[in-house]
């Protein structure tokens, strides 16, 4: 678990019985593991020159998207920034389509025209994948606005990093969401570093969960390394939004093990810091231990999950290399929707 100082005061204390079933936790474990193994494979393919450009890995933060996704219903929406592979897999998008987009192939979600930062799936409620830091917050507000306009009871999860949380349009969005009572859950994934700048060097706010307080937006700090804690907080937030009470803000205290992108050597933090997080707070190890200690799941059961995940990831990597590059005829399509 994270060091005591990082656990929000109100969540500290004796752990109560986890409000999660064996099946749910097993599913969460599987989904987190899929993201972890997928990202490791993406890192490998990047190293082999099969993936180009920017590639921001989600390793370490898996509990956030998996825990939140457990709170959603079909039709709810998700939007995030450029560190988006985990979000896509969590919404149920195919590993094949995501990996093939990373390699810039026609079998990718955007036919190879978007890349790591720009993938979408209307079917799964995933609205990107946005490369301009903070822009997805206004856009996510718009997804929530559409739910409000249609009065369809859906909620929009709008993810952004603690680095983006300082953007002007984020504050504009908090105001608009509170003003119109939009069903928007703002999720700050505080992984402590906006690229190479630690949060205390970038934000005068010491408690980002209170960044919506001036507009009356309830906020919570959540241990983002614990999928159960994430889900519990997520359920509160979703219930608030579905009840028509307006937006909610969750600050997920999390950590990315890798650099900001593949090209970041991460010299701004010590190897020991990263190692310590991995050893003491890893979301997958925590879930694994809980499954075995509290739910009687065996090594053999977990091995089956590991094998399933490994197979999916290997299949996605194979597909991403076999799928051809987009034909040249794709170059000048999808610029405008043709008017009939």
């Amino acid at each position: 678990m994270p060091q005591a100082a990082e656990i929000p005061a109100k969540r500290r204390g004796k752990a109560k019985a986890p409000a999660i079933s064996r099946d749910e936790l097993q599913r969460a474990y599987r989904d987190m593991l899929l993201i972890r193994r997928f990202e490791e494979k993406a890192g490998q393919l990047y190293g082999m020159g099969l993936i180009g450009g920017f590639c921001h890995l989600y390793i370490g933060q898996e509990a956030v998207v998996v825990g939140m996704q457990m709170c959603l219903k079909p039709g709810d929406q998700v939007i995030t920034s450029y560190r988006d592979h985990g979000h896509m897999l969590a919404t149920g998008m195919e590993a094949r389509g995501v990996m093939a987009e990373l390699t810039g192939r026609i079998g990718g979600y955007s036919k190879g025209k978007g890349g790591s930062m720009h993938m979408f799936s209307r079917e799964k409620g995933f609205y990107g994948g946005h490369g301009i830091v903070g822009a997805q917050v206004s856009l996510g507000n718009g997804l929530a606005f559409a739910n409000w306009y249609r009065q369809d009871g859906r909620v929009a999860l709008t993810y952004f990093g603690e680095g983006a949380s300082n953007q002007g349009q984020v504050f504009e969005s908090l105001n608009l969401a509170a003003l119109f009572k939009l069903p928007c859950i703002f999720i700050i994934e505080n992984n402590k570093y906006g690229m190479g700048t630690s949060v205390d060097r970038a934000s005068a706010s010491r408690d980002l969960s209170q960044n919506g307080a001036p507009w009356g937006i309830p906020g919570e700090q959540v241990n983002g390394m614990d999928v159960i804690a994430v889900r519990e907080a997520g359920e509160r937030a979703v219930a608030h939004c579905r009840a028509g009470k307006g937006p909610y803000l969750l600050e997920m205290k999390t950590y990315r093990y890798r650099g900001h992108s593949m090209s970041d050597p991460a010299k701004y933090r010590t190897r020991e810091e990263v190692q310590k997080m991995r050893e003491t707070s890893d979301c997958i190890e925590t879930a694994r231990k809980l499954l075995m200690d509290d739910f009687g799941v065996t090594e053999a059961d977990l091995k089956l999950i590991d094998d399933e995940v490994k197979a999916i990831v290997q299949d996605s990597a194979d597909f991403a290399q076999e799928s051809p590059e987009p034909p040249e005829s794709e170059l000048m399509t999808d610029i405008l929707v043709e008017v009939g």
Binding site: A135, N141, G142, L143, A144, A146
Partner: peptide, 12 residues
């Protein structure tokens, strides 16, 4: 803020 909100709504 409101332009981004409108663009997001248009995506739906």
């Amino acid at each position: 803020g409101f332009t981004g909100m409108a663009v997001g709504a248009a995506f739906t």
